[in-house]
Design a protein around this nucleic acid. Structure first.
Lengths: 249, 249
DNA sequence: AGAATCTAACTAACTGGTTAATTAAGGGAA
DNA sequence: TTCCCTTAATTAACCAGTTAGTTAGATTCT
């Protein structure tokens, strides 16, 4: 029995089927499918191409977040997105390309949210706090993303893939550079304790991300809901104070 | 083959075989195999059962750390451990059981290292620092473990598995309880800022673990070796100072 | 008609797990 | 000592089920 990877997917080997070429949708449907109250075009429609693509991407985010790259199943993604599996391969080259798209979605959202702060002309201390705030809020608003991020970090084994290098160059490098500058200036102005960005950055990311990437586990294990509005507000307050105390003078 | 079950009659269809009862190893081999210079017993030997089991477990730790649960391949584990794949199933029920064994290995080591500190009669502030030190040193000495830990945390999706509940009960619960007590006392004695263990614990774990679980990626991306002796010493200093500043009064 | 969108059914390759055969060693009997 | 039987340890070959990806078309819009 396949335990971790296994999933049931009966291929209907026995069920009686109509002749292959004689299939037609039941009369009265005419390519439309009633679903959850609203009518949705189904066959060969040009109506919702973007909608389909977006649905696939959304489903893929959820799937990759839940099961990781190796654990993600394309069949399940298609099912969640309510499209045929072949449509995944119509819009995306392969599973890896789909994963890349998910990464871009997740990381570009983060960068857009966070980079403007780092490029602003706030004072180092305020800038750092604002950076953490924005980062936290982005993650809190998309609590599935940390699992994708974490998976991606962990994917790299021994040597980096070209895709990972691209991600690093496009998303992490600019943030790292800005952060290094921020810390240098903050230390010079006496606003921040002098720290190595190579130490601070992974610590910030770790603090913010770990809580969310393990949230489902915490929810299952404790009585508390780690993603409730109040809990998240409390967590936010803690994180900001924690970091302020740790690095601000 | 005269298999009584009738399952497989097509065993070794091509290779010419000696008569069943007359088979003996070639003269001069006598069950030993020369391999990379040293002689290693190979066939049906009762000599190294523990050695074999240990080799499998060691290989499994590396494999699960590198590829995660779903990505881990039993064939590769067997190959790394230099044993036949069937031997995995001789010593462990299935892939999941092997993974459980890996988890126990990793978490029990951590608990043994860390719980005595929490149960000692150090003052709250010193106890906290000592806890973090021990935790850090354990992880630094086993830099593969964070990836296993992280994978395990992320494995839980939506609802906890019975195995996860066991892990939580056996390893996390006692640590959490001690930590909660420590923080309460520390706050009462005015040694520590009053914080929720539900916030502090995942932050500590996140800070310590994230750096190591992403180390391979960092190594591939930057010029620095994040696991060099000097870098780890620097990191250790940073982490301890960071946490001291953040929660100690 | 033709292009864009979409699907049922299929397949090649892989992967976890099983099986029957095989080997070395220990113990007892002759 | 020699022979045989039992058992633990180990393996090559195999299989059933799963999964990423493909194919040959169907549908609808312009």
């Amino acid at each position: 029995m396949a335990s971790t990877t296994g999933r049931k997917q009966t291929r209907r080997p026995t069920s009686p089927r109509r002749g292959r070429l004689a299939q037609r949708p039941e009369a009265g449907e005419s390519g439309l499918q009633r679903e959850r109250g609203r009518i949705r075009t189904r066959f060969g429609t040009r109506g919702q191409p973007e909608e389909s693509r977006a649905a696939i991407l959304r489903a893929a985010v959820a799937e990759f977040a839940e099961y990781g790259i190796a654990g993600a199943r394309t069949d399940r993604i298609a099912q969640t997105a309510k499209v045929n599996k072949a449509l995944l391969y119509y819009y995306f080259k392969d599973k890896d390309a789909l994963y890349e798209a998910v990464l871009d979605h997740v990381f570009s959202g983060m960068r857009e949210r966070v980079l403007p702060v780092l490029e602003s002309d706030l004072e180092p201390r305020e800038k750092l706090i604002e950076y953490v705030s924005q980062y936290f809020d982005y993650i809190a608003a998309n609590p599935r993303f940390p699992r994708v991020v974490q998976s991606e970090w962990m994917r790299v084994g021994a040597h980096a893939s070209p895709q990972m290098l691209r991600i690093a160059r496009e998303y992490f490098a600019p943030i790292y550079a800005q952060m290094a500058k921020l810390l240098r200036e903050g230390a010079e102005k006496g606003q921040l304790r002098p720290v190595n960005p190579l130490d601070l950055l992974p610590s910030l990311v770790g603090i913010v991300i770990f809580y969310f990437s393990t949230a489902t586990a915490m929810k299952a294990l404790l009585k508390v809901d780690p993603l409730s509005k109040e809990r998240i507000a409390e967590r936010r307050k803690f994180v900001l104070e924690f970091i302020t105390e740790a690095v601000c003078l």
